[in-house]
Nucleic acid binder design. Structure first.
Length: 136
DNA sequence: GTTCTCACA
DNA sequence: TGTGAGAA
């Protein structure tokens, strides 16, 4: 399985994303309304975030903390990722931009867990449990 | 118990 | 952005 596919496959409920990004559910949904992220949905309409979404959320958070508004962030993200539309699973059209190696992917995962540990040491187990499916 | 949408101070 | 209501 390609790394690219894996990054778009992870499915976190909003609660986990809140812990991972330290954003409120309100903010996360607000950013989605503004097109900053495109989380998938379950049949029950609950949001399912991929690692790409979490990654983007962290960028958004960083930008917000720098004093940017939604409009400003939209521009920044558009420059980085001009309309993802839908992530096609076609083998032929993959790897147009950044391909992550196994090591880089694991490094990213470690970072996520590190952030969580720094903020809420008592919730290691929960988050690790949710992320465990990404480790082999 | 968790998340969703909508709405209001 | 926060919070609460009401539904799923």
């Amino acid at each position: 399985m390609s790394d690219d596919l894996r990054r778009n496959m992870a499915l976190f409920p909003i609660g986990i994303v809140m812990k991972l990004t330290d954003l409120t559910a309100r903010q996360i949904r607000y950013y989605e309304q503004n097109g900053l992220i495109q989380p998938a949905r379950t049949e029950g309409k609950q949001r399912l975030f991929s690692f790409n979404d979490v990654d983007r959320l962290l960028e958004v958070k960083a930008l917000i903390e720098k004093g940017l508004n939604i409009a400003g962030i939209k521009q920044v993200l558009q420059l980085q990722d001009p309309v993802p539309e839908q992530t096609e699973i076609t083998v032929s059209s993959e790897a147009k931009r950044k391909e992550l190696t196994e090591q880089e992917l694991h490094q990213l995962l470690k970072q996520q867990i590190f952030f969580s540990n720094a903020n809420r040491p008592s919730e290691h187990a929960l988050i690790r449990g949710e992320l465990s499916r990404f480790f082999h």
